[in-house]
Amino acid sequence: MKPLLLLCLLLPCGLPTARAQLPAQSLEQVIARIKPSIVGIGSHQKTRTPAVQFIGTGFAAGDGLSVLTCAHVIDKLLAANPGETIGILTGQGEVAQFRAATVQALDAEHDLALLRLSGTPLPALQLGDAAEVREGQALAFTGFPLGTLLGLHHVTHRATVSALTPVVMPSANALRLDPKRLAQLQKAPYTVFQLDATAYPGSSGSPLFDPQTGLVYGIVNMVYIVNKGLKEAAMTAPSGITYAIPGRHMQALLLKNNALSSVPAAGAR
């Protein structure tokens, strides 16, 4: 099997609500409403030029002071330089502002991270029930592909749920079975959303949402690589196959860390 690339790049939600309770809007209206909730994930270091860099995407959930993103984005930031301050970027373009955050929790198994802010809450996105998602369903995701190359300008991609598939798929042959993959195969794999959509490094942490309501059903975290696993291939020849972690795992992480007062019963995914 061809390898998967986690979508982060190092370069110089409110309470869950039933879909019927949210009015249908056009995608244009939904994007305008959710953009203030979607942030860049990066770091600040005074001695660096530029002082602020970001490598991924996240979004506000819960009380607006909790931010969800991917664990591999935070791992990369933590490994880069111990002297850096991790945080989020809000706003857009040249008026972007950096806000420091603490890493409240990491869920490596589901590639999720929860950051905690102080100060003024952000408008939080609402989480839907991922068990309602079906193959062929039209969704969308908004984030910051290619990180600082394109700047803090929200980019939205349409997506079709092409399959509900196990997170770990068997390798084509024994030579591709590394220790990490063997450890994953020993566990019961959970289901992820396979999307017919193009994502790039920097898209990690983008909310996967209903284009009519803005309800978040998943979080984008990796892309299928065709060209021998080279990171450059994700930019020069994207496969158009992207994966997202279903929202039930985000709900569990928020509830475990008291970021939600209550959640409805999650579905099977």
Rank of each mutant, 00 (worst) to 15 (best):
L27H: 01
K180R: 14
Q184C: 14
S162D: 06
A174G: 06
T142W: 00
T90A: 04
V216E: 03
G229C: 11
A244M: 10
H154P: 06
P201Q: 06
L150F: 10
V67R: 05
P23Q: 00
P12C: 03
I31R: 09
K256Y: 11
L185I: 07
A259G: 15
Q45H: 12
A61K: 04
F144M: 04
P246C: 11
P166T: 04
P170A: 10
P207N: 03
A20S: 10
V39S: 01
P50T: 06
N227K: 12
P264F: 06
M235Y: 01
L117A: 00
A108N: 15
L77W: 00
A259N: 15
V95C: 15
K180T: 15
D129R: 08
L78S: 11
P36W: 01
E84N: 13
P50R: 03
H157V: 07
S261Q: 15
H249K: 13
A266M: 13
R99Q: 13
G247V: 10
D63R: 02
P123A: 06
A124R: 05
A266I: 12
P123L: 08
I31Y: 01
G64M: 04
L115D: 03
M169F: 09
V263E: 06
Q25G: 01
S37C: 01
F98S: 06
V30S: 00
D129T: 06
D75T: 07
A124L: 05
P166E: 07
P82K: 10
L260G: 10
N81H: 07
L150S: 10
P12L: 05
A174T: 08
P201D: 03
G56M: 05
I74A: 10
T85S: 13
Y217F: 12
V133Y: 03
P264Y: 04
V30P: 01
L112A: 10
G14P: 04
S162I: 04
V223K: 08
Y243V: 06
I88V: 12
S171R: 13
S118R: 11
I34E: 00
T57D: 03
Q29Y: 02
Q186M: 11
Q45G: 13
H72D: 04
V168Y: 11
R181F: 09
A113G: 08
A80M: 12
A197H: 01
K187T: 11
A140I: 00
A108I: 14
V95E: 15
L195I: 05
F209W: 06
M169H: 09
C13A: 15
R181D: 07
G218T: 05
K228H: 15
A113F: 02
A199R: 02
L230Q: 13
G93Q: 07
A138L: 09
E84G: 11
G83K: 09
L177M: 10
F141E: 00
T156R: 04
S204C: 07
G62R: 04
L127H: 01
L106K: 13
I241W: 02
Q194K: 10
S37M: 02
S203Q: 05
E84R: 12
K231D: 14
G214E: 00
H110M: 08
S26T: 11
D75G: 10
P12H: 02
V192N: 07
G40E: 00
P3Y: 07
A51H: 08
R176Y: 14
G62Q: 05
Q21S: 14
L112R: 09
